[in-house]
């Protein structure tokens, strides 16, 4: 009998043991779902880290009472400077209104996000004009605003540069700008990102191996249980002189199909999970857009589960 025929027989025979097959399928699906969830978290953290990885952010504070015309001219220059990814600027008035909104009791959900956009777009205090939600009145401060003009500048670090010395030099340059009081930046975020990527690269292989081991053990043991149901058949086949492969090939096909079905099913479950997480997390103030796994990872998950399930069934079929 050809191997193909043996495989087909193994698959056809699956319907003769519906209950053990169903149990195995659920087990495979759940283990794959667990692994898929891990991948999903990893993938989304990675995406988030990568998005900010090559960037350095500086917060620039001008002196209180600095000449706004000169400052705004500097802002225009900053926006045009090479390597600048994003500039958010706040005039003292915009900053004050931001502060007022922040201190006000929560009235409207989207308030913060909106005022940010406004400040970005206009670059001046027009956003502060009407602040109906403000519970406390800070208007007495307006004549003598204690807040400085500020800018939040994100740079794309040139790929050829070492990030930290580059950030140090950029810090010195920004600090030297006319009328600038203080510049802050956070090099740890960058270190964090680089560290994370190194960790993922180092941990990915052991984690994958561990996952394969768990799938192998769980699936192997469940398949062993299923093989108890087929014990008589295996015994009879052995009695009439079947070679090992004749007995194992159908069981192997059975394991492969279980792995394939289980992992594909788990991807559907994962899609549900991701949609739900997205609806839960994509709200202020998180705005986390939980993405689904990329195709390559989906394929890898299915392949890995299928291979391990096939292997486990081969081992379980050994006498």
């Amino acid at each position: 009998m050809s191997t193909t025929k043996l495989f087909l027989r193994g698959v056809a025979d699956m319907r003769r043991f519906p209950l053990p097959q169903l149990c195995t399928l659920i087990t495979v699906c759940m283990v794959a779902l667990l692994a898929g969830t891990g991948l999903l978290i990893l993938h989304n953290v990675q995406t988030e880290v990568l998005r900010t990885q090559g960037q350095a952010r500086f917060q620039i504070y001008w002196k209180v009472g600095a000449d706004m015309t000169a400052v705004e001219a500097q802002w225009t220059d900053l926006k045009r400077a090479p390597g600048v990814a994003e500039v958010s600027t706040f005039t003292p008035r915009a900053a004050l209104s931001e502060l007022m909104r922040g201190l006000a009791p929560k009235t409207s959900g989207g308030g913060l996000a909106q005022s940010n956009v406004a400040a970005n777009a206009s670059g001046n205090a027009s956003a502060a004009a009407g602040s109906p939600g403000a519970g406390e009145d800070f208007s007495w401060l307006e004549g003598d605003n204690p807040l400085p003009a500020t800018a939040l500048v994100s740079f794309n670090i040139p790929p050829a540069e070492e990030p930290e010395p580059w950030m140090g030099r950029m810090y010195a340059r920004l600090k030297a700008l006319d009328g600038v009081e203080q510049v802050t930046y956070n090099p740890t975020q960058l270190t964090l990102a680089t560290g994370w990527i190194a960790l993922v690269q180092k941990a990915a292989l052991p984690a994958l191996g561990f996952f394969a081991l768990v799938v192998g053990l769980v699936v192997g043991n469940t398949l062993k249980l299923m093989m108890l149901a087929r014990k008589d058949e295996v015994e009879i086949l052995s009695l009439v002189g079947a070679r090992a492969w004749f007995i194992r090939a159908p069981l192997f096909a059975n394991g492969v199909v279980q792995g394939l079905l289980g992992s594909v099913l788990s991807l559907f479950c994962l899609k549900f999970l991701q949609s739900w997480l997205r609806s839960v997390l994509d709200v202020p103030p998180l705005f986390l857009k939980v993405e689904f796994l990329p195709l390559t990872q989906c394929v890898a998950l299915v392949l890995c589960t299928t291979c391990v399930a096939g292997l486990a069934s081969l081992i379980a079929a050994r006498k």
Partner: peptide, 22 residues
Amino acid sequence: RGSQLPELRRKVAVVFQDFKVL
């Protein structure tokens, strides 16, 4: 050895009290 068992079983057929049919 285990790999020789099929060779033996192809020469020797066994019938049991409990039939052992599927």
